[in-house]
Computed example of a mutant assay.
Amino acid sequence: MSSTPSIRVSNLTKIIRNGVRTVEILRGISFDVEPGEFVAMVGASGSGKSTLLGLLAGLDTPTSGDVTLAGTTISYLQEDQLALLRGKLIGFVFQSYQLIPTLTALENVLLPYELNGTGGQREGLERARALLGSVGLGDRGDHYPVQLSGGEQQRVALARAFVLRPPIVLADEPTGNLDSSNGEQVMRLLLDLNRQEGTTLVLVTHDPAVAAHASRILTIRDGALLSDQRNVPITPTMHAKAASA
């Protein structure tokens, strides 16, 4: 294991005040994630797991405590600094895909290159096309999101998340809007990509079958870290037949 964690969360709290009412969403959470780990965060709706994932991504600011990514503490950086850091360090997979409807599948995958101004046009195109091929959409690059099924849209989103080879990928309920067959296929592809790229993966889910793929499971309850357990993960090949259906 590396001496520098990919992610370090130190006594993280998030409190929202609404008039005289105070809501404590996260309560003093601390943990490290080592490079290459696959960690699933589980918990009931409203437990705080998605808020925690947003803080890891620098999409929100904690009330107190710190988030450190690859040795850089991000919690109180300015937005322009955060944007640069996110572009270098993080790929994100959303439950609702978050594809740009006016862009083709290939253009959506290329979007991180455009936003960061990194990589030559030829390099980006080759990388994007290769990733679309790896998720089984090599012949769908010129299709718009409306022309793709939900499972296909999420596969485009996976390719986009990995296109810049980020050291960290964060996924928020990536199978939540999919039926079981498409969900299993997306999960298998996510694990395949993660293994091939050697990234650190942190995934939020309410589904025990999805969490079972992880090597470590963090259980969040009422804004606190209830348990941190090592897990013997289900390998993608165990469900390859079902996933390809």
Rank of each mutant, 00 (worst) to 15 (best):
D80Y: 07
V93P: 02
K49G: 00
Q121C: 10
E107H: 13
L55T: 08
L115M: 12
T104Q: 05
L132P: 05
F38Y: 12
D80G: 09
Q98C: 09
G133H: 09
L55C: 06
L99W: 00
T51L: 12
L55N: 01
G46N: 10
G36I: 02
I74F: 04
L77H: 05
G124M: 03
R86L: 10
F92S: 04
L69T: 10
G36F: 04
E123T: 09
L132M: 14
E126L: 14
G120W: 09
V93K: 03
A130D: 15
S45R: 08
N116E: 15
T104E: 04
A57P: 06
T61S: 14
I74T: 14
Q95K: 10
I29S: 04
L56T: 09
D66K: 08
L131Y: 07
L132G: 03
A40Y: 08
G43S: 07
S47V: 07
Q98Y: 13
L69F: 11
L82W: 08
S134A: 14
G71L: 14
L56R: 01
R127I: 11
E123Q: 14
G87P: 08
V33R: 03
T63P: 05
L69P: 06
T73G: 11
H143K: 15
V42F: 02
L125A: 14
D139T: 15
Q121L: 13
L125S: 09
T102F: 08
P62W: 00
V135E: 01
P62H: 05
Q121M: 14
E37P: 02
E123Y: 13
H143V: 03
K88H: 15
G48R: 00
T61N: 13
D32H: 11
G28R: 11
L110S: 03
L103S: 02
L84T: 15
L137C: 07
D60F: 01
E37D: 13
T61A: 08
G28H: 08
G124I: 02
M41H: 03
E114M: 14
V42R: 02
G133D: 12
T68I: 13
D66V: 10
L82Q: 07
V33G: 00
L103M: 10
I29L: 02
G46F: 06
T102M: 07
